[in-house]
Design a protein around this nucleic acid. Structure first.
Lengths: 354, 354
DNA sequence: CTGAAAGCGCTTACAG
DNA sequence: CTGAAAGCGCTTACAG
């Protein structure tokens, strides 16, 4: 006698349950949705059968009426290896996932890039598989943003500042953070400060550069053309850029480098070591991200920590508010970064904070 | 005159399109699904209207019949900060996401932990929101695996070797990789080799320990009790464990440490530096994961690279084959790791490979 | 308190 | 080649 083959019956429907309980489907539905208007005994009986049969109402059928998927799409433009190199995403993703779960939403992950990814995203939204979209690593001028707007898909961009009707954004004060860092360097007596930045098509990098310029200008200092560079979020780029700068004649050589990421800064550090330049004695150095590796380099990196948890949470809440069609919702938000001081630059921070 | 307010009409249905085209809903459906049996003119006309109206059939309605969601759940037990500390997941996730996209599946991310996460997962599967489940960081004996099996939800576990009927697994040869590493150490003349491992409730860590034992036993060496340790995937743990070992009397001190992760190894390295022990001269050291930080420590870490891309792809394919109910499917798979040699231990590797 | 019926947006035999 | 009708699994007024 086969023991547990009773599990092989195909998916139960509400009608099966109704039949077993000797009631109509409508009554089972009312019990399922904890609606009033069902006799206590009947209700108990139906509940028991539901329990023992392990019945669950089909999500799709249930939501044909509601016309909502209670899912939101989280879209990454980067490939997996880029994600790997830029480690802010896991934390962001975790915060978004937790918030959505609390609000009863599900998270759909969309990776890949290019036209194919875009078509997929647009379709999923149009088909109603996702109710809204979160874009955490969009490049400047990515046409997906306009396409989403045209389709009226509720959308929130992270780390950019799109100004469109149906689109909201959440960012952190990249510019202010770098400005503070440069001011600290200026206070410590540095005048030859270079900014080795990430890619120019990241709005965040533009902001970081802007913060650098603001501080330099306020101090009445000119910025040498090769002291302001856009590149890639890679150690190789950091190495190259720093090496070429450090080989200049001493009066044109930077005494401080503000890097666009910790990985870039780590590359700069390697270059300095290779050229016998001591950090922080002969060159001070700062990063961005508060990447794990920032604590393992020698010296450990002074860096900027983005409020990733808060950004993720805020973006998720904002998007849900869009989806619900709430009227008085916040459509933009800038959250503060935090400067983390370590050995690569301790400068005048103490005095600033004191 | 408001320009683009014509976009505010509520969601179009197949009946609206049918009406506009002067045909029945059935005919529109046939065009939508590229089925034969529609006149060329009619088809063209309907397609034009669909195009111009930007109509997309509702995914939910469409799949009421198919009873498939074409979504699979990717479940993480760890919290976001743990994910952050253990950086194998982004790459795994990317490989899984890309493969699923190619196969027409969507990826639903489920984070969080404990009973709440489990209930959510079980419900999503029972409701038909997801067709199957991928478990990439399950702890040994996690009861979710049995619950999923009881519910007959197609499931594939990564990094563990569950033996159940409806459950498949994909792993890498953690044991063999560590065994190789230890053999290399033995060949280089080491006899005092310690294994500072990750948590004991990760099956991968058990395997790594097993590989260590196998090699030691084969060499006829006894393993001192405090030379085999389980701990946490953290630099702090690595530091503590290494520090206490390195302070022993010289004949009880290890000359080599095989760490359970790069982060642990980085902690060991810090301890060595703090105690004035030179790496690799006085102590050789290996990690696991090929984390970015492994290239930035001094010396850079010899480590083990898991075949994450292949694991992700294989797991996705295996799960889809389960979902499709294919008969002759592979239900288990072990993929090979790769040893990455860097400065922290160059030992007899050359001779092994030569 | 409970049931029969219509409807959600689509698909699919079945007629014609 | 095309349409009318039944059905997918649920919910929701409307009767009784």
């Amino acid at each position: 006698m086969p023991v547990s083959s009773n599990h092989h019956n195909k998916k139960l429907t509400i009608h099966n349950i109704a039949e077993m309980a000797g009631v109509s489907a409508g009554t089972v539905s009312r019990v399922l949705n904890e609606q009033p208007g069902v006799g206590a005994e009947t209700r108990a009986h139906i509940q028991e059968i539901i329990q023992q049969q392990g019945y669950r109402a089909s999500f799709f059928a249930r939501n044909l009426l509601a016309r909502q998927s209670f899912a939101i799409g989280l879209v990454f433009s980067s490939t997996a290896s880029e994600l790997f190199a830029h480690p802010i995403y896991p934390e962001l993703m975790g915060a978004i996932g937790d918030t959505l779960a609390d609000e009863g939403y599900t998270l759909t992950l969309l990776t890949g890039s290019g036209e194919r990814r875009n078509q997929r995203l647009l379709r999923e939204a149009a088909e109603g598989r996702i109710d809204g979209v979160l874009l955490p690593d969009i490049r400047m001028g990515d046409e997906i943003v306009d396409a989403l707007a045209a389709q009226e898909t509720p959308t929130v961009v992270l780390g950019d500042r799109e100004q469109r009707e149906t689109i909201g954004w959440v960012d952190c004060d990249n510019d202010y953070a770098i400005m503070q860092l440069v001011e600290m360097l200026l206070e410590a007596g540095h005048t030859h400060i270079a900014c080795i930045n990430g890619p120019a098509d990241f709005h965040a990098c533009q902001l970081r550069m802007a913060g650098y310029h603001t501080a330099m200008r306020a101090a009445g200092l000119n910025v040498d053309a090769n002291f302001e560079q856009y590149g890639a979020f890679s150690a190789e780029y950091g190495y190259q850029a720093a090496a070429s700068l450090l080989q200049c004649a001493s009066e044109k050589r930077p005494t401080a480098i503000v890097a666009g990421s910790d990985v870039i800064a780590a590359g700069c550090l390697e270059a300095a070591k290779a050229l016998g330049v001591n950090v922080p004695e002969d060159l001070v150095l700062t990063g961005f991200d508060d990447n794990v590796l920032a604590t393992f380099t020698h010296p450990a990196l002074t860096t900027v920590k983005m409020p990733l948890k808060e950004m993720g949470r805020s973006a998720a809440h904002m998007l849900i508010s869009f989806i619900k069609g709430e009227k008085e919702n916040v459509r933009s938000l800038v959250l503060p970064c935090e400067i983390i001081v370590r050995e690569s630059f301790r400068g005048s921070v103490q005095s600033r904070r004191g």
